[in-house]
């Protein structure tokens, strides 16, 4: 559920919704939701002073993912 919720929240705010993927990974430090977006959208999901990333984390925390980290992965495609 958490991946699907995060994917929906991110897709709604970016210019390239089809290129949004979210993967839930089990790491030694705990569970991590890895978000990948089109490189042009990275700034959008981070937001001014990290505001949007903070909002995404807050909502995911509320939805029961308090022990889940949200990572925005810089893919840097085509380099």
């Amino acid at each position: 559920m958490l991946e699907e919720a995060l994917e929906h929240l991110v897709r709604g705010i970016v210019e390239h919704p089809d290129e949004v993927t979210v993967d839930l990974r089990d790491r030694r430090q705990g569970r991590v939701l890895e978000v990948r977006v089109h490189p042009e959208d990275l700034g959008k999901v981070i937001g001014r002073a990290g505001r949007t990333a903070k909002a995404l984390r807050a909502v995911m925390g509320g939805l029961g993912g308090r022990n889940v980290r949200v990572d925005l992965v810089d893919v840097d495609r085509g380099r």
Binding site: L9, G12, I13, V14, E15, K44, R51, T52, K54, A55, L56, R57, A58, V59, G61, G62, L63, G64
Partner: peptide, 24 residues
């Protein structure tokens, strides 16, 4: 309640995201 959070912090975050979704 899960969407409201302590002192409405989760609600504020959801409002922020909703505004961005509208803006897009």
């Amino acid at each position: 309640d899960r969407l409201i959070g302590a002192d409405g912090a989760t609600l504020d975050a959801l409002q922020e995201l909703t505004r961005l979704a509208v803006h897009r």
